[in-house]
Design a protein around this nucleic acid. Structure first.
Length: 668
DNA sequence: ACTCCTCGAGGTCC
DNA sequence: CTCGAGGAGT
């Protein structure tokens, strides 16, 4: 066969296979028997073997799973993948409806969809070709799982239109596949998966796509992240378009005119739940009009134009066997219920935090009680209440100890606080937890130094404070259990690397009260070196945005402690970096822009810039962007068809720019 | 009053 | 990863 005819044959095979594949996996209506599909696939494989240049990225043969990866690459999402706010009852949904109408008026349509219980993924297409797929990750950055996603048959490798966009969907494992997989795993004497979601999560994070290919995952695509030039004006139209170009969308979706209608539909769908071939964990309600969506905008973590109605969590009875106490790194004593293991919502539960003494009293929990347990958000175990009628009289009242279970010093309950605390700074439990915190991912991020190893090092007396970490020798580590040459060298390397961390990681790692990752960053940006921060007075600290009285006190007290001063010096002499290395804080006085220190409001539709770009640009020049016009607003940037905000700005006599003027200022 | 942040927690997977 | 309690900030 010559090249030309091979090429032609390959294209014909692509088309046939893709059609059959689409019919089978997306439409669920196969028109040919499986054997015919397999035959064509074999033919194509042979052909590609003979002419390797025919193995293009959109060839159906690419779905069997390609190269094994060493690790997943990070992918930064162009538009962040946010999670949705939750509604647990009718009242929450009515509140949502009220908020929406308050903002955009009474003329609102909703789209109601199933909330599939799987993993959110993002799929990028360029000119109709599937180029990259990623997990949600933390919403901003996910992992590149393109190869694994290609093995999902209902993801089109090539669209019916040459679109370039990013779509979002939920990858999941159908109930049937899940059952089959677990049967197989039992036969192979492997541990079965706890539930379809975990099985799907495990499969999608397989480094070897061949394993993922065997897991029979599926996907429902539910939105377009960047509409680009698609010309779509409604969420429902976006879904139709997705369907039109070859995606699998969920058919259980309805448009609603009123919240009453939404409520009825939710009831209907709830009844259908058991009969579905996949798990759902709720129902999503979205405002249909994209213009209204934009008007509603976002809160810090979720869109204001959508909400997830969560089904009531499954509740199960079990026995509370005992209450365990733990000492946290801040000295807080936390009681935890030890339960007789029970299955709840697909997993086994045997512990549940009881948070504090007040909660134990309030729920009247006694040791030996029969209790009702659920998983909040289907994830976190929680004791709901006690079944008092089932008491035998043998139950024992629990009271919090007066002394620390770890160091025996007297516990205190600070006025106005709920928590019981151990205030002994030498308390070994606190020190150990502090060390674990120091090496953790968001702090100094020392790879290979997990909780277990830290505990061991602490136990052996090899580390007494965080500075000791930097004094560890190779020989010391080699003597530990389960530490070979390789892991020892990796660990030493990680420890050395951590010396280079920017100041905010160190500050966070030190564990100053009330100073978490966010405040640590603010402090690091503001003061730039630990020396300057150590000298800072309470007033200087309070002057900083987002640092208040309590935090200022905590910082001053912390650095006043001679032990801390000694520790900081030790760290410095061991070569640990104590300066801020991140992007420079834009000081109002350092920016010569007109926008420096100005409070700016954006309104109307911007053409050249996205809202985010405009915001970032203004902030980079030392300005602040807020949402609504008030007398503290300095400047309003009005785009196309600006409405009430522009009017208000005119009334208040506030300076108004058009987009072009802003654009010039940003590009100066 | 409201929203954001800190802190602690449990279970499962790689 | 996700949740919930409670504290802190505005």
């Amino acid at each position: 066969m010559d090249k030309q005819s091979a090429n032609k044959l390959a294209r014909e095979l692509h088309e046939l296979i893709n059609t059959y594949n689409y019919e089978y996996n997306v439409l669920d209506k196969p028109s040919v028997p499986d054997s015919e599909y397999d035959r064509l696939m074999q033919e194509l494989l042979k052909l590609e073997e003979a002419f390797p240049e025919l193995k293009t990225s959109d060839s159906p043969t690419q779905r069997v799973g390609g190269t094994v990866l060493a690790a997943f690459q990070k992918v930064v999402h162009k538009t962040p993948m946010l999670s949705l706010g939750n509604a647990f009852n009718e009242a929450d949904l009515r509140d949502f409806d009220r908020r929406v109408k308050q903002s955009v008026g009474d003329d609102v349509q909703y789209v109601v969809e199933l909330k599939i219980d799987g993993l959110a993924v993002s799929l990028r297409y360029e000119n109709g070709l599937f180029v990259q797929g990623a997990t949600r990750g933390d919403g901003t950055t996910g992992e590149d799982i393109t190869e694994n996603l290609k093995t999902i048959r209902s993801i089109p490798l090539r669209l019916k239109k040459e679109l370039s966009f990013e779509v979002r969907g939920e990858a999941f494992m159908p109930k049937k596949s899940f059952e089959k997989l677990n049967e197989l795993r039992l036969q192979l004497e492997e541990e079965p998966f706890a539930n379809p979601r975990n099985a799907a999560a495990g499969s999608i994070r397989q480094l070897d796509p061949k394993i993922a290919a065997k897991r029979n995952l599926d996907i429902f695509v539910y939105s377009i992240a960047d509409l680009g030039g698609t010309g779509v004006e409604k969420h429902s139209e976006a879904l139709d378009l997705l369907e039109e170009v070859g995606f699998k969308t969920n058919q259980e979706r309805r448009k609603c005119e009123t919240i009453e209608e939404v409520l009825t539909i939710i009831e209907d769908l709830q009844e259908k739940r058991a009969n579905l071939s996949y798990d759902i964990d709720g129902i999503v309600i979205k405002v249909d009009s994209l213009a209204q969506q934009e008007e509603l905008g976002f809160t810090a973590k979720s869109p204001r134009w959508a909400i997830a109605y969560k089904f009531p969590a499954e509740e199960v009875m079990t026995k509370l066997v005992d209450i365990e106490l733990s000492v946290g790194r801040t000295g807080v004593i936390t009681p935890t219920a030890l339960l007789e293991p029970v299955r709840v919502a697909g997993t086994t539960v045997q512990r549940a935090s009881l948070h504090n003494e007040d909660l134990i009293r309030e729920k009247d929990i006694k040791i030996g009680d029969t209790v009702v347990v659920k998983k909040a958000g289907d994830i976190i175990p929680e004791v709901v209440n006690v079944l008092i009628d089932l008491r035998t009289g043998e139950e024992q009242t629990f009271s919090m100890p007066t002394h620390c279970p770890a160091c025996e010093s007297e516990l205190v309950r600070i006025e106005g606080e709920v928590a019981l605390r151990c205030i002994n700074p030498q308390c070994p439990a606190q020190i150990k937890e502090g060390l674990i915190h120091f090496v953790s991912r968001n702090a100094m991020n020392i790879d290979g130094l997990g909780e277990r190893v830290v505990a061991q090092l602490f136990q052996e007396g090899l580390i007494k404070d965080v500075a000791d970490l930097y004094r560890l020798t190779r020989d010391q580590l080699l003597e530990l259990e389960r530490m070979g040459e390789k892991s020892t060298d990796n660990l030493l390397n990680a420890i050395v690397q951590s010396k280079e961390n920017s100041l905010e990681r160190l500050l966070f790692g030190l564990g100053i009260r009330h100073v978490g990752a966010k405040a640590a960053k603010t402090l690091a940006q503001e003061f730039e070196t630990i020396e300057i921060l150590q000298q800072a007075t309470k007033d200087e600290l309070i002057a900083i945005n987002e640092i208040g009285d309590k935090m200022a006190d905590a910082v001053v007290t912390y650095f006043d402690n001679p032990d801390v001063q000694y520790l900081v010096n030790e760290l410095k002499s061991l070569g640990v970096n104590t300066t801020y290395k991140g992007p420079k804080l834009i000081r109002v006085e350092d920016s010569d822009s007109y926008l420096a220190g100005k409070t700016v409001v954006l309104t109307g539709k911007l053409e050249q810039l996205s809202r985010n770009e405009a915001k970032e640009g203004i902030e980079a020049l030392g300005g602040k962007v807020t949402g609504s016009v008030s007398k503290s607003t300095d400047l309003v940037v009005a785009g196309e068809s600006a409405g009430s905000k522009l009017k208000k700005a005119q009334e208040l006599n506030i300076e108004i720019w058009d987009e072009a003027r802003l654009f010039d200022e940003l590009n100066k």
